[in-house]
Structures are given as C-alpha cells and as structure tokens.
Design a protein around this nucleic acid. Structure first.
Lengths: 231, 231
DNA sequence: GTTGCCTTTTAACCAATTTTAACCGAGAAT
DNA sequence: ATTCTCGGTTAAAATTGGTTAAAAGGCAAC
C-alpha cells in the first residue's frame, strides 16, 4: 500500500532534519519545508495525508499557514509543534482544526504514536467510504461492499477475509501490495501466524481468479503480492 | 442532534466530579465510574462514544480496562489520564489504541479541545440521523414506530426485538453494525447468551427479508452484520 | 388465579469461516 | 551444490455463526 505522505514545516534546520529522518525510517514519505512560505507553496502543489507545522517561524507562522491550508482543505489533519505550552496558542490551534499539539522538547517516539493515532482515524477510513468499492478487471466485476465477485454469469460469494484481501489487491492493481501493510490493515497485527493465514487466503483468491487466466496474483518474493492483467 | 456520551473512569472522586460537571456543562452526556471494575461493567452494558480512563486506579487499572474494552470494541476512542508522564506507559497506551494522553494536572479547556479534535474524526456517527423512524429499501417500507414492515401489499408485524434490530441495521444501511454495539443497545448487555439470541433474530429478519432478494443481511465474520442492497 | 397466546431465551446441533499445522517446493545466499 | 528462508498447498482444529425446536417468561381475557 502507499505510504502516508507528511508535510513538515519547521524552520529549525536541525530539528527538521531529525524529524524527517526519523519519520522516513518509520515508513512515511516526508517533505520538509524551511519556512511557512515554502510550506504554503508545497502544500498547494502536492497531496499530503497530514501536516506537521511549527508555530513560531519567520516569514509566515504556523497558524497563518494553517489558516491558508484550511481554505482549500477542511479535512487534513494538522499537528502543531510549539516551543512552550502557551494556553492561548493551544486554543487558537484547536480552533483551526488542529488534531494534536506537541510541546518541545518531545520524544520522536511520542510524535510517532500520536501521528499513528490520528492517521488511524482518517485516511484509512475515508478510503473505504470514498466510493472505491467496485472494481473491474478481466472478466471479473468485484463489488467489495457486497462481498461478491462476478465472472461472466457466475456469482462468487466471498468471505470477509477474502473480500478484504481482494479489495486491498484491487486498490493496488498492477502495483505491489506489501505483506506487512496488508497484515496490519486486515489482521491488525503483522505476526508469523497471521502471515501464514494470509498465504492461505492468497491461495483461495488464486483459485477464484482461475476463471480468467489473464488475471493473476504475482508473488514479489520477500515483499508482497501484485494483482496484474497479463494481456 | 443527540449528545455525545462519554465514559469517565477515575478513582479520585474530586477530579471525577470536576470532569463530570465541566463536560456536562459543555454539552456532553457522561457516566462516571469510581474504579475499573465498575467501569468495565458499565462499558459492557451501555453504548459510549468515547472513554476517558485514569491509568492508576485500585482494583483494575486503566490499561487492563482498555484491553477489556478493545476485545469487544476495536474502534471507540480512548483518552488516558496519567499522573506523571511515564514514557513506557505512553507507549503501551498508544499500542492499545489510545487516541490521546493527558498528564495531570491538565486544564479542562485543553481536555475539551482534545476531545473535540478526536470526536470530529470518529466515523460511524449515526447520531445525526438517529431520529429517523421510517425507512425504504428495495420493495420494503419499514415504519419502526409502528413495528410494521411492508412489502408490496403485505404487512408484516414485527416483534419488539425484531423491530429494534432492523432499525439499527437500517440506520447503518450499507455499513457494518457491530455485534457488540447492537447487543448493548438492544439487550443492554454484551454476553454470550444474548449474542446467541441476537443470532436467532438475525435468522428471523432474514426470513422476512426473503421477500425481496435484493435486500440482504451480510455477515462480517467476527465483527457484525451489514444490511445491503444487492442491485 | 388460570388459561392460552405470543415473545424471547436457552439449548442442541449443524455449517461456515478462519487459524494452525504439517509438509513440500522455489529462490536466495553461502 | 547445499543450506536456509520464504511462500504454496492442503488438511485438521478451533472459532464463530445459523437454524430449529423446546423451554421459559410475559400478558391479557376469562
């Protein structure tokens, strides 16, 4: 699955670099901007899942930037970084739709945990709702809300796990679906036994997909699976 | 619009009372429990939108309680209150799916802002439409106040439990209705025997809904049921 | 109160889904 | 080539859900 993409706007080059390296190490895609002006420009020319904004910055402070962001995006989660815990700041920040507030110095670990808690409630859930529930590939028509895979006149009822796994594969059609990502999204835990369980379901899906030999699930050894059209 | 309902579990009677009064003043419905045992019992016999749990408590600490809660509800937001910012605690808490973490002493205002930020993102908010009493799906017209399900010219009288269950399913049309939520709302207790009773009623409803084969109750294994149009 | 009817719960049994386990084969690394 | 890890397949065990029928509970008419 795709990585979450984070916009980091922080004028302290040192902290910015640390944030960036740590979060990339943890599997996020990041873009670091050194001030609010660049941050604003970057936000409007790319798509992000979450913004981390320092409040005190030269040229354009974090709140002003947040206001600009909110004009074009009312939804995107925003996390503010602040030097000292100023009460008015906090209040103003939450009024702007902030999702969290970290007072420097904070631990990278805590930041990471808070980001996860926020993202868990946003992107993943929206994608389920966002209409990407029907897929067409080869002779198949797959309706994930109804848990049905149609092929020609045939109607195959999918079990819950079959359905979820095929949905993830379909969302990433042609791209690789990472084992670990799938496990975390469907089994909520990347462990040995769940991994073996997933392999069983890959086998089951392959059996269903035999109905059109142009559609296959390829193995990317050591990394994951890929649903492809073979034409 | 209905109020958000908060479960507060806090052994310090003083703080508990303050929390309670402040949050009720701010428009929330609250239930205050003095220890983890009572908290657990309360959670399993009522439906809440968010839990505020103190970590250090006699009888049953906040983490143990959170683990119990997570068994039957993977979604509900949990906010922990902690005396001192202990790093390991924080990590364990977030692992349990915590949404936030407040270190005592905190300001009521900050708590409120953080609660709002979390509730803004919670999905499955059927509160907005919970006043609805009439539903139309497929050939059916369902009047929950009259406990009548019409199909074509036919008029099916529903029993109380049939009616309540179909109403919950209808409110969540197309979305999953969590087993545990349904049990708590209709049977007021999420227990083994009530769960079996609910299965019996799912069977009864499926029998009624056979009159239009486009309307079905799908099973989401291990989680709940989903009323869907199959067009 | 007792009777009869209707609703709900309990129980027993059966069916489906998911997990665990065992075994085998393909690929990578040495 | 040999060893080791990783993935594939199949079957069994475990868990969870579905159906049916009988028991229990509730309520109104008598």
């Amino acid at each position: 699955m795709e990585k979450y993409k984070l916009l980091i706007v922080e004028d302290d080059a040192n902290l910015g670099q640390v944030l960036r390296e740590y979060l990339e190490l943890k599997g996020y895609e990041t873009v670091l901007c050194a001030d609010g002006d660049i941050g604003s420009k970057t936000f409007h020319s790319d798509v992000f899942d979450l913004c981390i904004l320092d409040i005190m910055m030269p040229k354009k402070d974090g709140f002003t930037l947040a206001r600009e962001i909110r004009v074009s995006d009312k939804q995107i989660p925003i996390v503010f970084l602040t030097a000292k815990s100023m009460k008015e700041d906090t209040i103003e920040g939450f009024r702007l739709g902030a999702d969290d507030f970290l007072t420097k110095p904070f631990s990278m670990e805590e930041l990471l945990l808070r980001l996860k808690a926020i993202l868990r409630r946003t992107v993943g859930n929206e994608k389920i709702k966002s209409g990407e529930t029907e897929f067409q590939f080869g002779n198949f028509h797959f309706e994930s809300t109804k848990q049905i895979l149609r092929c020609g006149g045939e109607e195959i009822k999918l079990t819950t796990k079959e359905n979820e796994l095929l949905r993830l594969l379909s969302l990433n059609m042609g791209q690789m679906l990472d084992r670990s990502t799938a496990l975390k999204k469907i089994w909520h835990d990347d462990s040995y036994f769940n991994a073996r369980s997933m392999d069983v379901y890959i086998t089951k899906l392959r059996k269903h997909l035999k109905r059109d030999k142009n559609i296959q699930i390829l193995t990317v050894h050591g990394h994951g699976f890929k649903l492809v059209k073979m034409d």
